[in-house]
Design a protein around this nucleic acid. Structure first.
Lengths: 121, 121
DNA sequence: ATAATATATGAATAGGTAATCAAGTATTCA
DNA sequence: TGAATACTTGATTACCTATTCATATATTAT
């Protein structure tokens, strides 16, 4: 069985109209990829913990490392990803760098996730 | 430099109160892990596309494969993950299995993500 | 200037994961 | 009954990624 046979099957013909309609409404490939990339950032327990902590208080790298019982290096690497994703911002104060949430979106995305996550099956 | 030295540093003492407060409010480890796992499911472009498609219409595996130009096998594997995460449900109709979103949470999480994702820097 | 502290970063590695392939089950149809 | 269709599933593989380690930079203190 080759690839093209696998993709096109009888039910596609049956549902042709529905599939066609959905395809027409489908957002740009790039747009959905970006969305996946955003959620990818939330999809790691270390980053989730960092984001949660920062939703409570501005903190420096060292504090986060202490709070989460991880090395500064590991935290720093993750903070870089969070900054690239525009989820956190930072400000320098002497030797220390303080991180905080960039905007209110993070808390909202968090909250919606929590609602689903906490629901019992 | 060993691990315990790296974790405990001077600024922890300075910020002791803040860190202590945050630690006290911190949700259960397991709770945050679950949240990360939920977002992990959203953090893949194939699954995002599937979820988006199902937010428009109930569809069978074959239709999704056709729509996204992927093999049935790949779609089926991803649908299993989505089902395990309680994001989709399915019903059998003859040979075909129709999938749809499990509840409204998915759309809401999606929407919050979109808002952040679409924002210009 | 030197040492110490706070952070950042590149390379290496171990663990995870998405797609593929091959084989299986379940259902329909001739 | 046997072939075809729709879907599932286990194993393999190639790729990705989180942490670690070693090192580098920036700031402060002595």
């Amino acid at each position: 069985m080759n690839n093209s046979e696998q993709i096109k099957c009888d039910c596609n013909v049956i549902h042709e109209e529905v599939v066609f309609k959905v395809r027409k409404k489908m957002p740009q490939e790039e747009s959905l990829n970006q969305l996946a990339d955003l959620f990818k950032v939330f999809g790691d327990s270390t980053r989730i913990k960092i984001l949660w902590a920062l939703s409570e208080a501005e903190m420096c790298v060292c504090d986060l490392a202490f709070l989460l019982n991880m090395t500064q290096s590991a935290i720093s690497h993750q903070l870089r990803l969070l900054k690239q994703a525009r989820l956190v911002k930072n400000r320098k104060e002497g030797k220390m760098v303080f991180y905080s949430l960039k905007d209110a979106h993070v808390k909202r995305i968090f909250k919606q996730g929590m609602i689903h996550s906490e629901e019992k099956e």
